[in-house]
Amino acid sequence: MAYSITSACIGCNACKLVCPQKAIVSSATGYAIAEHRCNECVGHHADPQCASICPIETAIVDQDHRALNPPGSLTGLPNERQVIAMTKLAAKVSGGKGGAHATNG
C-alpha cells in the first residue's frame, strides 16, 4: 500500500513538507515516495496529505496507477477528454448548421 509520484511532478516540494511519514524523497532527478514508508496516511489523517496539497493533476497515483487528482480536478481547466468531447459537439452543431444551410441553398 503506497502511492507514487509520476513525471507530471513539478518538484514544488509541498508534499515532502506535509507527509507525516517522511516518505517523500527528492534528488536532482526528481521526487519519489519511499514505498516502505508510505502508508497512504492511514491512521494520520482522513485524506492522504501529499495528494491534498499537490497542485498538479495526475502527479500522484495509487498502486493501480489511478491519479488521486485526475485531470480537471484541481485547476478547473477543461481536460483533454472534455476538450475532445466539446470539439466533437461543436463540430456536430456547426455541421448541423452547415447541413441546414445546404438544404436552404
Partner: peptide, 14 residues
C-alpha cells in the same frame, strides 16, 4: 519557497 498552500486562477504552477 517552492511549495504553495492555495491555488489562484491567475497562477500556473507549471
Amino acid at each position: 519557497a517552492p511549495a504553495c498552500n492555495i491555488q489562484c486562477n491567475y497562477c500556473n504552477r507549471k
